[in-house]
């Protein structure tokens, strides 16, 4: 057998692309555009158009352009107070969810895989029940003559029923219950990706278990904290049912205000102005939050 060594041709003639390759490329481009068109259409019809309509309507009074709605929101104390309540409740719910969710997610990420599946399903179970049903369930539990008060009194911990509903506590209990999975899941997703050898390495290098957690695990789980917190916060400030059913007068949230304008006053224009205002506030908060924590963290680009 003779061996063959071919001389390399420095000319570029044989690098001419085959016309069939170009046809393939064109077909690929078309199919990509087709897929994209579907998504763009859906977004345009279901998102961009309605939002634009809302923003547009918010600048109208009886069909003519005006900023009066916004002036009213800013000048009337009640509206600003409701906004402040909304943001405070959003912040409180986020904080409680984080405090409850972080250890839970840590535990989930630490158990063997077969347990993980079962436990994750348990975390998701609340999603299977209508959250209206869940809110009513909490009302049964927390009302003056409810289950929890019965227990407290029969244990002698209190002689009078404790007010746990129609106040901030009712709102927080109900909302945290609904929001917890939105905190746990992003946290879990990030934590499961943290190499446990890093914790071992930290300990090997002289870090106590607490130091290893604080210096290595906690910073590495920050993207999860960021994602979970922003998700819970944004969902919370637009919340309606729980504060409406379980909150008191002073726990009125912005969504309730919008509902009242639409249903009782039939003032769609002012309702859209409040909605737009909430949207703007949300965007500003998210922007500031991203600036502090870094967008790449929220979207998980940074490891």
């Amino acid at each position: 057998m003779a061996s063959i060594a071919r001389e390399r041709d420095p000319g570029s003639s044989h690098y001419q692309p085959d016309p069939r390759l170009q046809r393939l490329h064109r077909r690929q481009l078309l199919s990509h555009l087709g897929l994209l068109a579907l998504a763009v259409t859906l977004l345009a019809v279901l998102f961009v158009y309605p939002i634009s309509r809302i923003i547009y309507t918010s600048f109208l009074i009886d069909g003519s352009f005006s900023l009066d709605h916004y002036r009213r929101i800013i000048e009337v104390d009640a509206y600003i107070r409701v906004l402040r309540t909304t943001l405070t409740i959003g912040f409180q719910v986020t904080l409680i969810c984080l405090l409850l969710g972080y250890p839970l997610a840590y535990f989930l990420a630490s158990v063997p895989t077969r347990w993980q599946r079962i436990l994750i399903i348990l975390v998701l179970v609340p999603f299977w029940t209508s959250f209206l049903v869940r809110t009513y369930a909490w009302m049964v539990l927390l009302q003056r003559r409810g289950v929890v008060n019965d227990w407290l009194m029969s244990l002698g911990l209190t002689s009078e029923p404790v007010q746990m509903m129609y106040n901030r506590m009712g709102v927080l209990v109900g909302m945290v219950h609904v929001m917890l999975p939105f905190m746990v899941l992003p946290l879990f997703a990030v934590m499961i990706g943290i190499d446990r050898n890093l914790i071992r390495a930290a300990q090997n290098l002289g870090a106590s278990p607490f130091q290893a957690f604080r210096r290595v695990f906690l910073p590495l789980s920050l993207p999860g904290i960021a994602a979970g917190s922003i998700l819970v916060f944004i969902l919370s400030i637009g919340f309606y049912i729980t504060p409406a059913l379980m909150g008191g007068r002073q726990d009125t949230m912005i969504a309730q205000l919008i509902e009242a304008q639409v249903r009782d006053r039939l003032n769609w224009e002012f309702a859209t102005a409040i909605a737009t205002f909430l949207l703007i506030v949300t965007v500003i908060i998210v922007a500031v939050y991203n600036r502090i924590l870094g967008t790449e963290r929220v979207f998980g680009e940074d490891r």
């Binding site: 050898n197 890093l198 390495a201 090997n204 490891r303």
Partner: peptide, 20 residues
């Protein structure tokens, strides 16, 4: 003894460098 009180250096299989 717990690992952090051993004063023994270790190089891990996938290096385990702290990414942050």
């Amino acid at each position: 003894r717990p690992p952090h009180k051993r004063n023994v250096g270790m190089v891990f299989q996938n290096y385990a460098l702290f990414p942050h």
